[in-house]
Design a protein around this nucleic acid. Structure first.
Lengths: 320, 320
DNA sequence: ATAAATTTTGTAAGCGATTACAAAGGGGGT
DNA sequence: ACCCCCTTTGTAATCGCTTACAAAATTTAT
């Protein structure tokens, strides 16, 4: 009953090779005959062997990567948690170990690490520049020319969300926006779609929802009560979309019959399935890791956009 | 500039003892002369030495402790995150290592661990019983006779919150409640205070806020709009209190002049400082660890209430 | 003072991985 | 066949810490 967790030696023994070879296979080092590799991998698979983190780290070959999280509230958002976990996994696969590092007011991370990932930085946080100067191996999640960055295709996603509504026949399309880089980019996508399809842009249809449920609810409800009308709404985040849905329902409107709502992010376990723009968080994480390795090897900085995808569920319908 | 992180050998060398002795001091093992202990601790302090987690774990002396988190949403609440982190720290100090374990549908944790901590379990989750039978070294955060459990003094805190409002002269005191064990206990405290102070209990003043901002907002606003009146409100969580504050403000009421609001939890970084009942999350974590050790040593199960404390800030005022 | 008992300390073997280095194996070229 | 070179594999040291055991120091008993 009491089965020991298999170690690298178990794998080696069963595969008829040495631990060194197993290690080389697992770390994709060159110089292992393909058939040996196969044999080892088969045993790994069979035993369900997973290298022990502590041992790997102790042997001195995992590098620390620090994550700097700017505003404290960010820490509590599902998006952040998902991204953090995903990042942690991806890094581990590349022999890095994620560690949360407090972003000191002076702008210097407290602990030394091989590289850094910055999440949720403010727009023109002066600390960013300093950070990059002092620690070139830094990757930002967000957009920032001159450094390594990774960001979802926010404008593209917003464009497709809006386009989706337009194609359903909607012409009065409201937008729940929010301050900051991300909010701005999603707004741009919205606006561009309107323009391309010759739907007039009306500033009074854009509300600030601060990326959270309650402010979104209040903004939508207030606007509607003041006579602002629309048959479609694109919220720059799922949480805001949820707030909007609640507000509209309180106003005795039906979703999607009276108003179609599109969100952004595709967070899991949301309670209500939303038509939304899905971000591939794991893919973002993998990209961060890829760039981080480039950064560490002193490649010239570049930015990458990760594609997003429209997921149509039942909060949108053809305009009646 | 490139200063190495000190190891146990550095400490040993500087203190003029062997690594074995340092280790014994650090792990509070007996059989170290007090003056030697002092000397070692001084060096530890001076170097800022912190044992390396990986090495400690590898040496086989840290036990895994699994945390089971029931509903997935829980994971995104600040309370959970705070508790999790606190728990992780406290466990580490006692040579345990926290690990999140998926609560499989069958009710059996997937991985083997020395002990388990269950967070946010449903009221009478049938899996709990099975859990305890199969893994006696389980501590629940919540109340459950027959097993080890730790819970904040919810009834007491709710009592004091309500009492505070009563003593400020309020007689119409609303309550934002929520389903589940915790919600019920806080409701009980509220009710008991009313009874003790001879304030009539009025069921129409109790709303369901589902422990979150938006539902709380909607409940409060709807009630007020339907003519329900109160000059004080005790919300069973800070988040709900925030929702209530927003609702009341939208109804053109001033806090605390028109309505006094009390929350529960004292979450940090809330945006608006609230009069609330503070939970000492670190203390809860420490208690969990203490009980966990008892559980592991097969002591008879018991439950512990951790005291809470009323923190008066500026969302409450004397009734006008 | 000496031996025995006890307390305190040092020594060294692991824990599970990685990796430098050495050794073995496999072709070609002659 | 023989030698050389390149690829593949094995060996063993290493990372930082804990701990069983041995050794030394101290106390107690006689």
């Amino acid at each position: 009953m009491e089965r020991r967790v298999p170690t690298i030696s178990d794998v080696a023994r069963l595969a008829g090779v040495s631990t060194g070879t197993v290690s080389r296979v697992l770390n994709q080092r060159s110089g292992v005959r393909p058939e040996t590799r196969e044999r080892v991998l088969a045993v790994v698979e069979r035993l369900g062997y997973v290298p022990m983190a502590a041992a790997r780290e102790l042997s001195g070959h995992t590098d620390k990567v620090g994550v700097l999280v700017s505003p404290r509230v960010w820490k509590y958002s599902p998006y952040f948690i998902l991204l953090y976990e995903s990042l942690s996994d991806s890094l581990w696969n590349e022999n890095f170990k994620l560690e949360e590092i407090p972003f000191s007011p002076s702008g210097q991370p407290m602990a030394e690490a091989r590289g850094y990932v910055v999440l949720g930085a403010h727009d023109h946080d002066p600390r960013l520049e300093q950070m990059v100067r002092q620690h070139p191996s830094t990757v930002l999640v967000g957009v920032q020319p001159g450094m390594f960055w990774v960001a979802p295709d926010d404008p593209g996603g917003a464009y497709r969300a809006t386009e989706h509504l337009i194609k359903l026949g909607h012409r009065e399309i409201a937008h729940l926006s929010a301050a900051g880089q991300v909010g701005r980019e999603r707004f741009e996508g919205y606006r561009q779609a309107l323009e391309d399809y010759r739907v007039p842009y009306r500033p009074e249809l854009v509300f600030d929802g601060a990326f959270s449920t309650l402010p979104a609810y209040r903004a939508v409800r207030r606007a509607w009560e003041q006579g602002v009308r629309f048959s479609g709404l694109f919220a720059a985040s799922d949480e805001m979309a949820l707030g909007a849905v609640a507000a509209l329902e309180d106003l005795h409107l039906r979703i999607p019959q009276d108003v179609s709502v599109v969100g952004f992010d595709d967070l899991p376990d949301l309670g209500r399935p939303l038509t939304t723009v899905r971000q591939e968080i794991p893919e973002i994480a993998r990209t961060v890791v890829r760039l981080l390795k480039e950064a560490i090897s002193r490649a010239p900085p570049r930015g990458v956009r990760v594609p997003v995808q429209l997921v149509v569920r039942d909060t949108t319908a053809r305009k009646r």
